[in-house]
């Protein structure tokens, strides 16, 4: 069934009683989806912790190739973007959609900065012959003055690329989603009464931030 009607200027699908009924149902759906995100990333964390405890020295060697300054900057960028994302919702709640658009634009920009820094991190490693798993190139690493010490170092970078890669994909998806709600916002589709899509996208973006909050110490600091 696809019919809907207007209640207080908000379109409400006919299987919902009122605006709040629709809002709270949508919100619950969003949270359930976030649970699946947590469990999916969680699997990687579980694997990482297990192998980190099995091969602590190999993991330390791997972590030594990461530059914590890059991760640190990226953490600040993401936290700031989370903040502006929250503002994007806030300004819609208080009826200032123009400011909300700006906040969302800055959020996307931060996502882009994050990805650019990631790009430099990745290319730097590729340049040194550091690839995931079997593709790691010990000769190239030796040429760059960093001979590989543990024969299974590829596993660490398997984790590194899988975790940061999957996270990066989420950043890209998040940027796309934020752009989408930003355009809708510019078209004037949201109001203090209706901003559920921004809120949903916001929660997704905060999940991306949340995962990075743990990825940062896991990959860069606890070597």
């Amino acid at each position: 069934m696809s019919t809907s009607r207007l209640i207080n200027g908000v379109e409400v699908a006919s299987h919902f009683r009122d605006v709040h009924h629709q809002y709270s149902s949508n919100k619950e759906g969003i949270w359930l989806f976030m649970v699946t995100e947590i469990l999916m990333f969680g699997g990687l964390f579980v694997g990482y912790i297990i192998f980190h405890s099995l091969y602590p020295e190999m993991f330390a060697e791997g972590a030594s190739y990461l530059d914590w300054k890059m991760g640190f900057v990226n953490t600040l960028v993401l936290i700031f973007s989370s903040f502006t994302m929250a503002l994007g919702i806030y300004y819609n709640q208080v009826g200032q959609p123009k400011r909300a658009t700006w906040a969302l634009a800055i959020t996307v920009l931060c996502g882009a900065i994050f990805m650019v820094i990631k790009y430099f991190e990745y290319t730097h490693k590729f340049h040194m012959g550091i690839f995931p798993g079997n593709l790691i190139n010990p000769e190239m690493m030796a040429e760059h003055g960093h001979p590989m010490q543990h024969s299974n170092l590829g596993m660490y970078f398997g984790f590194y690329y899988c975790m940061s890669g999957l996270h990066g994909i989420h950043v890209l998806i998040g940027m796309g989603l934020i752009t989408w709600v930003m355009i809708r916002n510019m078209k004037g589709e949201f109001s203090p009464k209706y901003y559920t899509p921004i809120e949903g996208v916001g929660i997704f973006w905060h999940i991306v931030d949340l995962i990075w909050i743990f990825l940062f110490p896991l990959l860069y600091l606890v070597g």
Partner: peptide
Amino acid sequence: AFLVMAWFMHLKYDEPSNRVIFALGFFFL
């Protein structure tokens, strides 16, 4: 993480059921 969840993700003011749902994810992890 707590700060992000409570304020940015608005869980502090959300329905308790949504908090339970989100917590379930961590529990089964």
